[in-house]
């Protein structure tokens, strides 16, 4: 997340979300999804893509997909 949003690693925590990270805009959101899919080797269903608006939801969804 830190690389995609071009912010320092320590500025990202489990409370990070589209509301408090300024660089998390819609274009970068797409880049984040691409990076996550490649990193974890998963395919995130379309209906989930728009919902992944904070760190916890991302964690939850990826864990779900990895099961």
């Amino acid at each position: 997340m830190s690389v995609v949003f071009e912010v320092p690693l320590d500025s990202i925590n489990e409370n990070s979300s589209t509301d408090n990270l300024e660089n998390w805009d819609s274009l970068r959101h797409l880049n984040l999804i691409l990076a996550l899919e490649e990193e974890f080797g998963v395919s995130i269903p379309d209906e989930e893509v728009g919902n992944l608006v904070n760190f916890k939801l991302i964690e939850l969804t990826i864990n779900e997909l990895l099961k």
Binding site: V3, E6, N31, L34, A35, E38
Partner: peptide, 12 residues
Amino acid sequence: LKYTEILQLNKQ
């Protein structure tokens, strides 16, 4: 290279 690796190398 992974996408994130490219982003990192590019930044460097």
